[in-house]
């Protein structure tokens, strides 16, 4: 199998879709703990296309509102910022999320579903696990955590049996290690390169880079990265992985330093993920038909 050089990876990143101005500003804004919803409203108002999409979503059948919402302020406070971030990202870099991960033998759509479920689960881990960080930020980080897979998937084509063999023979500790052995990079390193090109806030970039090794994240961002780490594992346990790598990663049980979970809380999180996912998937998809 051909390994990717660092220069080649840079080229791959360069040819990837870039964030729109409003998506980029939205991620900067919502990563700042001092922002409030009015800041989000003001930002969305500067983008006519995004405003239209948000209004269309809130009035779509998925929400079943009796009275139409015509003001963007009300629409955003009704939906919450996680829906706005999902729409803004889907609009400009939807291609990355919808990519068919051939290298992982996954169908197109599997990555987006996995990301959405990780996002919901990470948010619920924050809420139900008694954490003091922003639940919506955990959602955004969950949405973005696996973007690196879209970059390296083509280079991993037909490698799944070999990757699995590396793990079962204990030559690789997990799928991440197998990726690095096969092509010289793993999906968190590739994702981190894209995060830099997208100029993502540091905490989101670290969530992408360390979601399988949260202890390596900067201390300040560690709670967020652990929430995404658990969200990712919960998504895979619920049957929404991205193909051949599903469940073939290691749980860092030191999450207990930041998150308090009993088996019942975990079960309750899994239940919430199932019900929220149906709602979110339908509603975000239902505004997609006029995607420009």
């Amino acid at each position: 199998m051909k390994t990717i050089s660092h220069d080649e990876l840079k080229k791959i990143v360069k040819s990837s879709p870039m964030l729109s101005v409003s998506a980029s500003r939205l991620l900067q804004l919502t990563s700042n703990p001092d922002h409030d919803l009015m800041d989000v409203v003001n930002l969305v108002k500067t983008d006519a296309n995004l405003t239209a999409r948000v209004l269309k979503l809130v009035n779509s059948a998925a929400f079943g509102l009796i009275n139409e919402i015509t003001s963007i302020d009300r629409a955003i406070s009704y939906l919450g910022e996680r829906f706005i971030v999902s729409i803004a990202l889907g609009d400009c870099v939807g291609k990355v999320f919808e990519k068919k991960l051939a290298g992982y033998e996954a169908a197109s759509g599997d990555l987006w579903k996995h990301d959405l479920r990780t996002a919901i689960a990470a948010r619920e881990v924050v809420v139900q696990g008694g954490m003091e960080i922003s639940p919506d930020l955990a959602f955004t980080a969950g949405l973005l955590h696996d973007i690196g897979k879209a970059l390296i998937s083509d280079y991993l084509k037909d490698s799944a049996p070999e990757a699995i063999e590396l793990i079962t023979s204990h030559d690789s500790a997990d799928y991440l290690d197998a990726e690095e052995k096969l092509i010289g990079f793993d999906h968190t390193q590739a994702g981190f390169e894209l995060a830099k090109a997208w100029q993502l806030p540091e905490k989101l970039a670290e969530a992408i880079r360390y979601h399988h090794s949260p202890a390596e994240a900067s201390e300040a961002f560690r709670p967020l990265v652990y929430a995404v780490h658990l969200g990712d594992n919960i998504a895979m346990m619920g049957g929404f992985g991205t193909g051949s790598d599903s469940m073939r990663y290691r749980l860092d049980a030191n999450y207990t330093d930041y998150i308090s979970l009993t088996p019942n809380t975990l079960a309750s999180i899994m239940l919430t993920v199932d019900s929220e996912f149906d709602k979110l998937e339908q509603s975000v998809a239902s505004t997609g038909e006029d995607k420009r």
């Binding site: 346990m237 073939r248 749980l251 049980a253 975990l266 079960a267």
Partner: peptide, 16 residues
């Protein structure tokens, strides 16, 4: 009933 690698007791939903 699969489990992720290095799972702890809480995350052993597959086994439970």
């Amino acid at each position: 009933g699969a489990n992720v690698m290095d799972t702890n007791d809480t995350f052993q939903i597959g086994k439970r």
